[in-house]
Amino acid sequence: MAHYSKASHVGSCLSIAEILYTLYFRILRVDPGNPNLANRDIFILSKGHGSAALYATLAERGFYPKAYLDKYYIDGGLLPGHLDKEAVPGVEVSSGSLGHGLSIGIGMAIARRTALDSGRVFVLLGDGECNEGSVWEAAMLAGTLKLENLTAIVDFNKLQSFGKTNEVIDQRNMAARWAAFGWDAHDVEGHDVAALEQVFSAPQQGPKMIVAHTVKGKSVSFMEDRLEWHYKSPNDEQYVQAIKELEGKK
């Protein structure tokens, strides 16, 4: 998708691939045939620049034809670079400006709790996104309200748009920070599907925070842990090489 449309944020997408796979194929109660199913689980991609990864996951899960993926980030396309919930079924919340998704997730979790709806709400944030003050406004409230139907994940890939995450704003104690705000915080290897599934499924006291330790550009040797892959789009040669490496890993 990113190669075809010359789009950016490839590294940001590869760091969350296993998280999205685990959620959509192992955890979330969703029905692609009925995207508005009552009591469904909600997933919010608050780091909206990872849109391509979500579009691909939703297509794979059957929310819409895979042919839609060719309509990403192009003139007259269907799928914008940052999420628009009007674009395709399965996208619950529009995003792209950082620091919005967790607050919206709290509102959804409150609505479900008040209605005795068993649906869970999941919000995926970027590590750089945690620089936004609004994230911590939301973190404080969710802890206070002890929202047991809310789970947030931080994609802790240690790179943000213009520097190394812990050099821009030191967040090495990421899980401890969330725990201090009343979250049931866990560190997990963010590319390990079994470990992710286990932590998503574990019972929780209050809101759950999963600090997913990930690698930006995961599984493509020349992209891994490289800041430039927040911006670059693979050329023809890089695309072939990347696909070869990704398929080789499977």
């Binding site: 967790l102 607050s103 919206i104 709290i106 409150i110 609505a111 406004e137």
Partner: peptide, 28 residues
């Protein structure tokens, strides 16, 4: 009491939470 929420002095969060409620069929 179940439909009243003081979110603290945090206006960005207040509006985001309201949007989440509205997306779930409520009228905040």
């Amino acid at each position: 009491p179940d439909r009243y929420l003081n979110v603290g002095i945090a206006e960005q969060n207040a509006v985001g939470v309201a949007a989440g409620l509205a997306l779930s069929g409520k009228r905040p």
